[in-house]
Measured scan of single mutants.
Amino acid sequence: TQTTHELTIPNNLIGCIIGRQGANINEIRQMSGAQIKIANPVEGSSGRQVTITGSAASISLAQYLINARLSSE
Rank of each mutant, 00 (worst) to 15 (best):
S46R: 09
S45K: 14
G15C: 05
L13D: 12
T53K: 14
N67Y: 12
A39M: 09
T3H: 15
A23I: 08
A56W: 06
I52S: 03
L70R: 03
S72D: 09
G22Q: 06
Q63R: 13
R29P: 01
N26I: 08
I66S: 02
I25F: 03
Q21I: 01
P41R: 13
L70I: 06
I25C: 00
R20M: 08
A62S: 03
K37I: 15
T3W: 08
I38A: 02
Q2K: 14
G15N: 12
N40G: 13
Q49L: 13
L13S: 11
N67I: 07
A62I: 05
S46P: 11
Q2H: 13
M31D: 05
I59H: 05
C16M: 14
S46E: 09
P41K: 12
G47P: 03
I9W: 01
I18M: 03
E27R: 12
I38P: 02
I52P: 02
Q21E: 09
L13M: 13
G47S: 13
E43R: 10
T51Y: 10
K37Y: 12
I28R: 01
T1G: 11
E6H: 15
Y64A: 15
Y64Q: 15
T8V: 15
S71I: 04
L70M: 06
S71L: 07
G19F: 02
L13V: 04
I52L: 11
A68R: 12
V50F: 02
Q35E: 10
Q63D: 14
S58E: 13
N40D: 13
A34F: 04
S72F: 07
T3Q: 14
E73C: 08
S58G: 06
R69Q: 11
H5V: 15
I9H: 11
Q35C: 08
I17A: 02
Q21M: 05
I36P: 00
I14P: 02
N24I: 10
R20W: 07
T3V: 13
G15V: 03
Q35V: 08
I38D: 01
N11V: 05
Q63V: 11
L7T: 04
A56S: 11
A23M: 08
N12E: 07
G22Y: 04
I25K: 01
E43L: 11
T53Y: 08
R48I: 07
G33H: 02
Q35K: 14
A23F: 13
S55W: 03
G44H: 05
I25M: 07
L13N: 06
E6D: 04
I14C: 06
N24R: 14
L65E: 07
